[in-house]
Amino acid sequence: MSAKVSAGKQVFAIVKKDVLAELRTKEMVIAMLLFVILAMVVFSQAFAVILNDLDRVGGGLLWVAFLFMSMLGLNRSFVHEKDEGCLEGLLMSPIDRPLIFFGKMLGNLLFLSIVELFAVPIFFVLFRLELGASLAGIFVATIFLSNIGIACVGTLLSTISINTKTRDLMLPILFMPVIIPLLIAAVSATGGIMSGAELAEVYRSMRFIAVYDIIFLLVAYALYDYVISE
């Protein structure tokens, strides 16, 4: 048995592995970013009527794009592990099971955040939106809070869906209904910020997102062992 390695180091090792693999191939982040921008273009053309009303619908538009982009990325993140036998390797390594979850989740969170770091400014430029500095801070905080929930639920469910016959078709079916509460709150918060609603309303939605994150982090922590062990 290897010497005791701290939990933080174990988690970091998994994140580092995913980042290194991504740096080598660069296939995920670039594809996800392209997907988001394309989705925005499709929306702007499909819903040209609402382009005058973007203060109110822009938030929803952004989240639909992010949601589909995140599913794309989540599917990829485990297809690799499964097809190349990495998951078996991870399972055989002396890493604690729940830590595997946090490692994979943080990796997904990192990729999501990087893509959005580029996608959000592009979104604001394309749709001619503006935010003051203080509001921009709240906006970014909302997106980051939501990312935690998306990465958490997504990592948990994509580990399940990768083990089914239909695989990448299965993830949206399981993921979307479970993520809907978070989507409602995220749309409400970002939409509220952009349309100049009262900040108390926005904070209420953000609090809900935080509660959602905590609940599903606990659920995932408790259940992940059962998901990956035969």
Partner: peptide, 8 residues
């Protein structure tokens, strides 16, 4: 709970 949240 989320359903009652949306102010929009």
């Amino acid at each position: 709970v989320a359903g009652r949240l949306d102010s929009l």
